[in-house]
Every structure is written in structure tokens, then in C-alpha cells.
């Protein structure tokens, strides 16, 4: 019975020791909305449809990204010819359906899609998540 008592005392002591050790260390958590953590360059955040310096899409409308997408993240890629004969591409993405797997970004032959570090895009308007360029 006494041995039980001492065992209990010992584990109580051990527990407090562990807690106190942590109490004097640097805290590991961040106060989130005020302070934000840096994410790495590889981070798979919101997908940007890249434009060149003339504000023209890099995309050539090959449709590979749509083919490798597992879940309708890429809704539609339409090639339209304008009156002056220029090719215009209408690219439609749905960020609500995308699972940010990266298949489209990695398989695009033109590097026309890019991951950004943005991860806070919760919204209550669903149409904001549908991106048409």
C-alpha cells in the first residue's frame, strides 16, 4: 500500500517536472489571425493563372490541365477567335471544387498555372470562388 503511495507521488512529481520544463521554454503556438506563419515556396495555395507582361494569358488552351484534374477544378477552357483574328482564351476555374493536388500545375506544358502562398480564401459568396479569366 505504501509502495503505491510512493509510486503515485513519483509520477505526480514526474508530471509536474515535465510541465514546468515546458513552461519555461519558447511557446510553440502562434496567435493565428494576428500573427501568421511563413509557408514554404513549395506550398500549394490558391492557383494563379499566369499572364505575361502584355496582360495576355500564357495558356495556349491545350486542355491538358482539364484532362489530369481529378475533380472538376478546371471547369472549361474555351478558345475564341476575335474579329481581328487573334486567339483569345477563356479559362474557367472553380476553387471550391479544386483539391489543390497540383496535377494541373505540374503537367502544364506552358507553365501557365502557378501556386501562390495564399491560403485564406473562405467566403460566404460561392461565386467568388469561380474564377474566369
Amino acid at each position: 500500500m505504501f509502495s503505491d503511495f510512493f509510486k503515485g507521488l513519483k509520477s505526480l512529481f514526474n508530471g509536474h517536472k515535465t510541465v514546468m520544463k515546458q513552461a519555461f521554454q519558447k511557446r510553440v503556438t502562434l496567435e493565428y489571425p494576428e500573427k501568421k506563419r511563413d509557408v514554404s515556396d513549395n506550398f500549394r495555395g490558391r492557383i494563379e493563372i499566369v499572364k505575361d507582361e502584355n496582360d495576355k494569358l500564357l495558356c495556349i488552351g491545350c486542355g491538358l490541365c482539364k484532362k489530369v484534374c481529378p475533380c472538376n477544378g478546371v471547369i472549361n477552357i474555351e478558345k475564341q477567335t476575335e474579329e481581328n483574328g487573334k486567339l483569345h482564351i477563356r479559362y474557367e476555374r472553380d476553387e471550391a471544387q479544386c483539391i489543390y493536388c497540383g496535377n494541373c500545375v505540374e503537367n502544364c506544358p506552358q507553365k501557365a498555372l502557378k501556386f501562390t502562398k495564399e491560403y485564406e480564401f473562405a467566403t460566404d459568396v460561392k461565386s467568388e470562388l469561380r474564377k474566369i479569366v
Binding site: S40, N42, F43, R44, I99, Y100, C101, G102
Partner: peptide
């Protein structure tokens, strides 16, 4: 894992 793959749990 996040630095390496880009996500914390869904690595792909």
C-alpha cells in the same frame, strides 16, 4: 512535410 510536398496531410 509541408516544406517538401506543399501540404500538411494530403501529400500527393
Amino acid at each position: 512535410f509541408e516544406n517538401l510536398t506543399g501540404q500538411r496531410m494530403m501529400y500527393n
